[in-house]
Structure formats: structure tokens, C-alpha cells
Amino acid sequence: MSLIDSVSLPRNFRLPRVDGLVQWIVPLGIIAIWQVASITGFVPARVLPAPSDVALAGWKLLLSGELVRNIWVSFWRASIGFLIGGSIGFAFGLANGLSQLSAKLTDTTLQMVRNVPHLALIPLVILWFGIDESAKLFLVALGVFFPIYLNTLHGIRTVDPQLIEMGRIYGMRDGELFRRVIFPGALPSIFVGIRFALGIMWLTLIVAETIAASSGLGYMAMQAREFMLIDVVVLSILIYALLGKIADSASRVLERATLSWHPAFQKR
């Protein structure tokens, strides 16, 4: 997970200024090699179409409006599922981190449920919801719930007790203590949870859309497979990768903005 990477990097280790470009050298290089390999016939088009063919397929789908519609559907499912599962996980994390009673009441149950891989529930979920939107939202929400729950809980539990005592000494009541000490202290851990959750969100959605859907990127890929449109299949995979990258970058930006106090995020 890259948050952990960035936190544990030694202080004085930094790539030079060009690092915005450096990270794209390898992906672009791979595409270039791939293109050459396809043109020379080293990789048959049945196995892997040339990048140019994939781009062309993308262009056609874009013109027909199919691509935008499917991306939008997937994006919508991902965000709504994430919001639902994330908020519930966050709420439980807060409650169980702050209240002994709540933790005693629910933590054991949640830990038990956690040990069931949520994708194993797909057959059950299809029986419950059919291949309706709610099935996908349910799966995504369930998958996202645990990383956020666990990391919020962990973050709150590990806030430095000396700081909490300090807050009390200086007369902070519960609300202020939470706002000034506990929540900011738990935030780095909450972000770790968000990053994990984003990964699980895409994974869940791909699987759910591939198995049970009538729209979305996963569905588009499955349709294309039936008609042997391998360029569309590859396109879908690439778009998934791109969406994952965008979600990750967004959480990074948010992290940088809110954790600017953290030594790992300070500019030197």
C-alpha cells in the first residue's frame, strides 16, 4: 500500500523534481514495445491486439456513447457503494473506538463477519437481489466496510494517550477533544483504510459486473468476449486500471492536504 511506503520512506530520500514524468516512462515504454511486437506479428492479434487497435475500438465506442455510459455506470456504482460502506465502517470505527460498550457489543460479531470473503457471498447476493443495482452496491459496500472500519478503529485506539491526557488537563470537553486530538490523530490510519478500500472497491466491482450485470465496464468486457472482440476486452481492462489510478491519486491529494503536518508529507 503506497501510504505506508510514503510514510516509511527515510526523510532524506526524494526523487528529483522530474518525478511527475518519471513514473510514466515505464507504462509508455511497455505500450511502445507492445505496439512494435504486434506490428511485427510477434504477438498475434488473436492473443493481444495492438495498442492502436485498442485505441481505435475505444474511439468507436466513445462515438457511439456506449463507453461513456458504461464508465459512468461503473463509476456511479463504485462511488455510491464506497460511500455507503465507507460511512457505515467509519461510524462503527468511531463508535467502537470511543465507546467500550459499543465495542463490546459489536466488535466480536464484526470480526467474525470479516473472516467471510465478501465475494463468496455473490451467489447469495444474486438470490437476494437478482442482478439488480442493489446487488453490486451491496457487495461493494460490504467490501469497503472492513478496511475502513478496522483502520478507523485502530487509528482511534492508538492515539497517544499522553496527548489525550494533555487535552483533558487543558480543559477540553469530549467534543473538542475529539475534534482537536482524537480525530486528527486517527486520520493517517483512516487514510490507510481508504486506500485499501479503494482497491477492494474496484476488485469487487469488476467481479460483480462480470458475473451479474447488464451494464457497466465488466458487462461490456463480458459482452465483447462473447463476440470475440478482444480489443474491447483489453480496453475495459485498461480503463479499470486507469480508474483505479485516478481514485488512488485523488485520495493522495486529499491525504496531502489534510496531513501536511505529518513529517512524511512535508516539503523540504
Partner: peptide
């Protein structure tokens, strides 16, 4: 009152996420 008695520990116990000035403001209590 609470503000009349203050303690200083071996560890500074500053809030890492608050600027120096806000850390000092914490000491004002109510």
C-alpha cells in the same frame, strides 16, 4: 480553577497537527 494549575511533563506533548501558535492557544483552557 483549572487554568490556575498547570503541569509540564518530560515530553512536550504538543499536538503534531497544530501549528506552534495553536498549540499555545490550547493552554488557554476555556
Amino acid at each position: 480553577q483549572a487554568e490556575d494549575i498547570r503541569v509540564m511533563f518530560q515530553e512536550p506533548r504538543l499536538l503534531p497537527w497544530a501549528r506552534v501558535l495553536s498549540n499555545v492557544e490550547v493552554g488557554l483552557g476555556r
